[in-house]
């Protein structure tokens, strides 16, 4: 089934109208019924036809875990790799072929535990990867051990007396690594997911998206306190660039900044709308974005969703390609015969 047609003359291809169906592979989806992964998959398959990228130029790389089965269900190029290493493998793909659109899929265990190192380094290098981290705060595929985002005190198979690990805040980790795009969305809001995934695609550089995802088998309801339909108005803090941070049915909640420059949750009426913090995604300094990520220490408190940060930074693979071009300009294309006979040589007759 061809979804592209060549433009005569230059051999390049242009996408014809693609639909969600074009991104559905022939493989049967095998997540547990009711898993949040289904809605994330659907959101992405619905969003991709809108971005005008030929299917063959999309590459999905995943690690290990439930969410990492994702590439099998996408009718694009894909690799289901090894635990934690997807950001590194994807870096290899992107460095080799900056023309491709590379997405990385993994869970909280995959990306923040065994693969934490690769995640932060991909972010600091600003490789043009779109990294979706499905956070369900549990190990699903290994049947229910606590994860690096599980709350302290959590009782699981490996923590019968409660977890004593302090959890990561994934958004804080990403901002701490100076990621150029950091956002959060959740599996209960397909429209919001599509909006954020589109923003991630449009961003030039590494994009980190935390997707709150319900594991209805091993950690059911982990986000209920904020994601229940009736809880959302009071518990989700929508971040919108250029607008005061304000939510609630009547806009009664807000975020202001105290005398130390720290944002805090307040009642709009107490400080006045004009004193609410106006969200600026493009601040070069990550400090305020980091502080916003600290407003909530877990999904039991009002939690920001949306884009925390989007800034321009040089893209790793473009810089590298630039060095190659520069090198050819300076020294000419490499000549191996000249290179190997450089330095002192002698001839035996």
């Amino acid at each position: 089934m061809s979804v592209t047609e060549p433009i005569s003359g230059n051999g390049s291809t242009t996408p014809v109208a693609l639909t969600r169906k074009d991104f559905v592979s022939d493989q049967e989806v095998r997540w547990c019924p009711g898993c949040g992964d289904y809605s994330i998959l659907a959101a992405l398959q619905m969003m991709l036809p809108n971005i005008n990228v030929p299917r063959e130029d999309l590459v999905f790389i995943s690690g290990i875990g439930c969410s990492s089965r994702f590439p099998y269900y996408m009718n694009t190029y894909g690799m289901h790799s090894i635990h934690g290493r997807a950001p590194a493998i994807a870096t290899g793909v992107a460095v080799s072929r900056p023309d491709l659109h590379v997405w990385v899929i993994g869970g909280d265990g995959d990306m923040l535990s065994i693969g934490g190192n690769h995640l932060i380094h991909a972010l600091r290098r600003n490789v043009n990867l779109k990294i979706l981290m499905f956070n369900n705060r549990i190990y699903g595929l290994t049947k229910g051990q606590y994860s690096p985002t599980s709350e302290q005190g959590k009782i699981t198979k490996s923590t019968p007396f409660g977890s004593i690990d302090h959890p990561f805040n994934p958004i804080s980790v990403a901002i701490g690594a100076e990621a150029s795009f950091v956002a959060r969305t959740h599996d209960m809001d397909r429209k919001h997911m599509q909006e954020i995934f589109t923003r991630a695609h449009e961003h030039k550089g590494a994009a980190f998206v935390e997707v709150y995802q319900n594991c209805n088998v091993f950690n059911d309801g982990a986000f209920d306190a904020i994601l229940r339909k009736d809880a959302r108005p009071d518990m989700l803090i929508p971040l919108r660039h250029g607008e005061p941070i304000r939510w609630g049915a009547e806009g009664e909640h807000g975020v202001a900044v105290n005398q130390f420059g720290e944002p805090y949750v307040c009642r709009t009426v107490d400080v006045g709308v004009e004193h609410l913090l106006v969200h600026d995604e493009h601040r070069q300094d990550p400090t305020l974005a980091f502080a916003l990520s600290r407003l909530s220490t877990g999904p039991s408190m009002p939690t920001p969703v949306g884009v925390f940060r989007e800034i321009d930074r040089p893209i790793y693979e473009e810089e590298l390609a630039g060095q190659l071009e520069e090198s050819v300009k300076r020294a000419g294309p490499g000549d191996l015969a000249t290179l190997i006979s450089s330095g002192p040589t002698w001839t035996v007759a």
Binding site: A88, I89, A94, S96
Partner: peptide, 15 residues
């Protein structure tokens, strides 16, 4: 590990 993993990614793309 990342070095080997990046090389695997590069191989996938034909390098």
């Amino acid at each position: 590990i990342a070095a080997a993993a990046m090389a695997v990614g590069a191989a996938f793309t034909g390098q």
